[in-house]
Nucleic acid binder design. Sequence first.
DNA 1: TTAATATCTAAGCAAATGCTTAGTTTTGTT
DNA 2: AACAAAACTAAGCATTTGCTTAGATATTAA
Lengths: 197, 197
Amino acid sequence: MLRFVMYLKTMARKKQYNEQEVIEKAMGLFWRNGYEATSVRMLEKEMGINQFSIYASFKNKQGVFLESIKCYKTKVNSIKDKLKKSNNGVAGIEQYFYDFLEFSKEDSLFKGCLVTNSVNEIKEETDATIMVELKNFANEIRDLFVSNLKQDDLIENTTIEKHADYLMNSLLGLSIASKVFNQQQLKNIIEVTFLKL
Amino acid sequence: MLRFVMYLKTMARKKQYNEQEVIEKAMGLFWRNGYEATSVRMLEKEMGINQFSIYASFKNKQGVFLESIKCYKTKVNSIKDKLKKSNNGVAGIEQYFYDFLEFSKEDSLFKGCLVTNSVNEIKEETDATIMVELKNFANEIRDLFVSNLKQDDLIENTTIEKHADYLMNSLLGLSIASKVFNQQQLKNIIEVTFLKL
DNA sequence: TTAATATCTAAGCAAATGCTTAGTTTTGTT
DNA sequence: AACAAAACTAAGCATTTGCTTAGATATTAA
């Protein structure tokens, strides 16, 4: 109550930007560029707002990055949800691989997975917060693999966890492979990965 | 001849460091830290020589990095040669996966593959030279996979190339997975990867 | 209209970046 | 012993880094 009154009392000029919108742009830059190689000046230009506003809204560069990861996660949700609802076992997982490739492509450039790229850059000791965030993300997808694997009778229950790890590894690989190999090779990779499942 | 005389004439003070030795130290730093996050001051300390010497020997930071990649390649040769001589098909490749994990481990920390890490950091447009270098490296290992796959009768000749891509993808994945998953999971990944080959 | 205050612009800060230079030291040749 | 020249030290360069601050502007409640 008191707080509400105080808010009204101190309410003044409105923000001229939408935090969600500018974070989406920041995310794109981090995705293309990586964390270290993205400077606050570059963020300014990309987000279209002044440094003051960046720091007012997100505290610091790491804050912008953490929000970008959150934003990335919600974007990934579109293909994650599809997998969640698929209910067709391994086939659904295979489709997820193709969906990921499409998702990570901008024009003809493959950007990989923002989270995977970050795992490579962030050093556990100095940025434990971010690393925990990243490991959680990987495990969320792994869990979806587990539940889809259970839908088929192809894989023994005892080896489902192993197969989930196997599939996560292939997916992580694809994040890098997409930057090095051509489209046909990427298709081959997915094909062979699921060949004997 | 003339050149030799000139060399003798201008011969003066000797270098107080061995270029190969200091590059090995630089490589270790890049491997642990990545390219962007490694500053010339850090290189100074790690290599144990002054900035002047760094620039005299390697031209610039990128020069140090390129030499580090070369150095990394010769280090990898130890396990690559083992694979080359193995002559036992898929089993030899599987052993290479384990050898790589051991090779990329420092104390209890997995550093991944320096080249793979770099692919993630370097953007094709700005650092084309390095990217070419990295793609070549990946293809060299891929070629070894091809020739080992041919040693077995397990895989049809028509699908050997596909399987080589598949294995390269798993290996790339392992470079990241080793930073996120535990030892048992890594073992599971390799096990399943080779289960039906 | 006016007072209060959140948000803006733009200039500025110290520190770190990659790289260079001036000047000293060490070495080999004469 | 004296000279020439490569290799050293250490200071310094311009630029960029992440972040802050002073002051102008806009918006709301009274």
